[in-house]
């Protein structure tokens, strides 16, 4: 059964149709790439799935249950974490403090397992180690570089211990080497059992990451399948050449 199932999802802003009946599903453990030209509705889709925006029509099922009426924080607690396109760290908290937030407000709020203060410190250290930010644990976000900021964004999403991670343009503006670094990190996370949807412009990153590719154009899904097949699709080519 699919972990995430979106059906007939629609969203309009005034007269502008941002999403027009989107259907797609993601199975547990998958690595899915979501691409599309600027303004094709990728970010709106993410916002509707995560509860930041309310969709006008259609349904979203997560882990077998409909989550339509759920607020963003409730969806995070269900196991649906996201990173933001532009990093949005908590500026007044340290790097480690940023990671502590989802542990306190998501992991401990789920019920069941409760992380003690010591557990949280240990988890923070572990996650920072994983993304390579351990030396900056006690610094503030304003001291971080672009790539470090992106890593913090991913680490914070990971700290919520999600089942599904949606990474919204985690690599825009990074150098080639940095892109490879983040892709490796995401693949590593996937191997640890986390399903990932990657929204990205950088084709090289998408192609090396994705097991499956979904293409959005003007609020509609125009392709969904194996990356090498999808990328040959004439409609996809036209959408990208037309840009």
């Amino acid at each position: 059964m699919a972990l995430l199932e979106v059906s007939g999802l629609g969203k309009r802003f005034g007269g502008f149709v941002a999403l027009d009946g989107i259907d797609f599903a993601v199975a547990a453990g998958e690595r899915v790439g979501l691409i599309g030209p600027n303004g094709s509705g990728k970010s709106t889709l993410v916002n509707c799935i995560c509860g930041t925006l309310a969709n006008d029509s259609g349904t979203v099922h997560f882990d077998g249950a409909p989550i339509g009426g759920f607020k963003a924080h409730q969806r995070t607690r269900l196991g649906l974490a996201r990173s933001f396109q532009l990093p949005r760290p908590f500026m007044s908290l340290t790097v480690a403090g940023n990671l502590r937030v989802p542990m306190v407000y998501t992991v401990n709020a789920r019920g069941g397992r409760h992380l003690s203060a010591a557990d949280i410190d240990a988890r923070c250290a572990e996650l920072l180690q994983l993304v390579g930010l351990a030396p900056k644990a006690d610094r503030f976000p304003r001291d971080l570089t672009q790539v470090e900021m992106r890593k913090l964004e991913l680490a914070r999403a990971m700290a919520a211990e999600p089942k599904l991670l949606i990474a919204d343009e985690a690599m825009a503006g990074l150098s080639q080497a940095e892109v490879s670094e983040i892709v490796a990190l995401l693949i590593d996370l996937n191997k640890r059992g986390i399903t990932i949807i990657l929204i990205e412009h950088i084709m090289r990153a998408v192609m090396s990451f994705s097991e499956r590719l979904v293409v959005l154009v003007s609020g509609k899904k125009i392709a969904d399948g194996r990356p090498d097949v999808v990328i040959q699709d004439p409609e996809v080519e036209r959408a990208y050449l037309g840009q």
Binding site: C50, T52, K71, H73, Q74, F90, V101, P102, Y105, A160
Partner: peptide, 24 residues
């Protein structure tokens, strides 16, 4: 923990929600 949650709201409400903080 409450004050911690308040600080996340002051810093960035959207990110706070995404981190599981019940902002409202």
């Amino acid at each position: 923990q409450l004050g911690y949650g308040f600080a996340t709201i002051r810093d960035d409400e959207l990110a706070a929600e995404a981190s599981g903080v019940p902002t409202l």
